[in-house]
């Protein structure tokens, strides 16, 4: 299915809302790569992508019946992904407070081979300095979402999105230094 075709997507959502497993599977297949990329941008950890993606799609299946406007599915799905990532990061922060981990465990390095280019490493490093909310904003822009769609995803105004996006981009540029520039 081409998820960009609105009519086909709406039909697919209706079928999934009725509980058709094949439609639910098709939605997961259509969006899994984009959601996984979004989650990686939000968390910066390869090893949590699959777990969080699974949580997002399970929540999607359970809450799909409550989605009133199927044409708003994409902003709704990305809002679900954003909120799940923020919850995950919050839980991790709490775990660091309550579990007796030493500072050496605070930033466990990515498994070998997980980060394969200087550009990716530099971007991950820069994203690390941003608030999760700002990371989500930048990741949504990279997803090709318009300001209006992002405003709908984040339930805020277009003006607020523009202002926050400007600040987030400035901050990212401040920290984004590919190796040859540093």
């Amino acid at each position: 299915m081409d998820p960009s075709s609105t009519a086909a997507l709406v039909d697919l959502i209706h079928r999934a809302q009725r509980g058709e497993e094949s439609a639910q599977r098709e939605i997961i297949i259509s969006y899994q790569r984009r959601i996984a990329g979004f989650i990686y941008a939000m968390t910066g950890r390869s090893d949590s992508v699959e777990d969080i993606a699974q949580q997002v799609f399970i929540k999607m299946i359970r809450a799909l019946g409550r989605l009133q406007a199927p044409s708003q599915f994409e902003p709704w799905l990305f809002r679900l992904a954003r909120n799940t990532c923020i919850d995950h990061l919050r839980r991790q922060k709490l775990r660091r407070i309550f579990l007796p981990f030493g500072p050496e465990h605070e930033n466990v390095p990515e498994p070998p081979g997980a980060v394969d280019t200087e550009e990716l490493d530099a971007l991950r490093h820069a994203l690390d300095h941003l608030r999760p909310q700002d990371r989500a904003l930048l990741a949504l822009v990279q997803e090709g979402r318009s300001h209006a769609e992002i405003a709908s995803t984040l339930k805020t105004s277009i003006a607020a999105v523009k202002a926050r996006l400007h600040r987030a981009r400035e901050q990212l540029r401040e920290h984004y230094q590919p190796d040859h520039e540093s």
């Binding site: 790569r33 990329g37 979004f38 699974q54 971007l123 991950r124």
Partner: peptide, 19 residues
């Protein structure tokens, strides 16, 4: 690169596992 790296983290059979 970041997005495709993230997408590559899903093991085959992901939709079936979710369902």
């Amino acid at each position: 690169i970041l997005r495709s790296h993230g997408a590559a983290q899903l093991a085959p059979g992901f939709p079936d596992r979710v369902l």
